[in-house]
């Protein structure tokens, strides 16, 4: 009798759920977006999500997924609809999967000839990455000019875990494809790249060194809130040059010391990328128009980064604050 009661109540719960469901409101348009794994990307994505949800009547499901080729394939397969702020020099799938021109300010900044399984539009953010050392280190060692002097000072950069080599607080996430160790080896820098798993872990490590006044070498990018509080100097890696054969398909065959990854990063016109079937369907014409028009600026992102990174605001609150204080985004509406 007790068990039958349980079974019946179980069935009844399911039935009642259908009843309530039919009364509930269904969302007209539903998209899934991947949440980027660095703060700047999160802000850009939240800007897009806030506008889609609040102005264009979308419901966006935010999925936490590590960036990298896996994410590109998930978008091509339609499991995720779009992702934000990809940096072309980090993306390895862009040449293979995008088949269109990347336009910034009416100018073509990069053209792609892939298979067309991904579409991409610029976000407006222009990024720059480098290796940095603290300014107090450069001041104390005037004969430190650029990256080629790193070996002379490697003892100061070493710690227990790297032994006799210097330590680079490297790109924290494997899926970002920074090739830090490869770059160090090709350039003959006797350092070990340490991968700490998350942006915040890398920054915490760097902040600890900075507060103690120790020399350290840090991979970082601009815009970033770390530069607000701490004075850092770039090590001026060699200027970027592409290497055609350095891809997964060619088993990462490098081009020696002259080209990527033995060089610094290119200037990145970052892009939002999405599933073409989704974005080109008439149902999502509003979203397409928005993504084409979106032009978020470095200065705005930098301000919000400080709010999030230093003032401890949540990304949602920082974006809401920005959205209420300016009308800039109204120009991006369809």
């Amino acid at each position: 009798m007790k068990n039958s009661l349980f079974l019946k109540s179980f069935v009844a719960l399911i039935l009642s759920s259908f009843l309530v469901l039919s009364a509930g409101t269904a969302y007209a348009k539903r998209l899934t977006a991947a949440v980027p794994d660095w703060t700047g990307g999160e802000i850009t994505c939240q800007v897009a999500v806030a506008i889609l949800e609040e102005e264009l009547d979308y419901k966006i499901e935010r999925i936490v997924f590590p960036s990298g080729t896996g994410l590109w394939e998930a978008i091509a397969a339609g499991d995720i609809d779009f992702a934000c702020e990809s940096w072309p020099s980090y993306a390895e799938a862009d040449d293979v999967m995008i088949n269109m021109d990347l336009v910034y300010d009416g100018e073509v900044v990069k053209s792609y000839n892939g298979d067309g399984s991904i579409n991409a539009y610029t976000t407006g953010i222009i990024g720059m990455s480098d290796y940095y050392v603290p300014k107090y280190f450069v001041d104390a060692n005037p004969d430190f000019k650029d990256w080629s002097d790193l070996n002379k000072f490697k003892d100061q950069f070493a710690n227990a875990e790297t032994g006799s080599k210097g330590k680079l607080i490297g790109c924290p996430v494997a899926g970002w494809n920074c090739h830090d160790q490869k770059r160090l080896d090709l350039l003959g820098i006797d350092f070990t790249a340490v991968e700490l798993g998350t942006e915040v872990a890398a920054l915490a490590e760097a902040q600890g060194h900075y507060d103690r006044g120790e020399p350290f070498l840090l991979y970082l990018w601009e815009p970033h809130f770390f530069f607000g509080k701490n004075e850092m100097v770039g090590v001026k890696l060699p200027a970027h040059k592409d290497c055609e054969s350095f891809t997964e398909a060619n088993n990462w065959q490098d081009c020696g010391t002259a080209a990527w990854p033995a060089t610094g990063w290119a200037m990145d016109y970052t892009m939002n990328y999405m599933n073409p079937d989704m974005i080109n369907s008439p149902e999502h014409a509003d979203a397409l128009a928005f993504f084409k028009k979106m032009k978020f600026s470095n200065t705005d992102q930098a301000k919000m980064l400080v709010r999030v990174g230093d003032d401890g605001l949540s990304v949602e609150d920082a974006v809401a604050e920005w959205k209420n204080s300016t009308n800039e985004w109204k120009a991006w509406l369809p």
Binding site: P66, S67, E92, G197, E248
Partner: peptide
């Protein structure tokens, strides 16, 4: 949180699809 070895390989494999 910074572990290495086979676990990291699994993660890298997932991230690179």
């Amino acid at each position: 949180i910074g572990g290495k070895g086979l676990g990291l390989e699994v993660f890298n494999g997932l991230a690179r699809s």
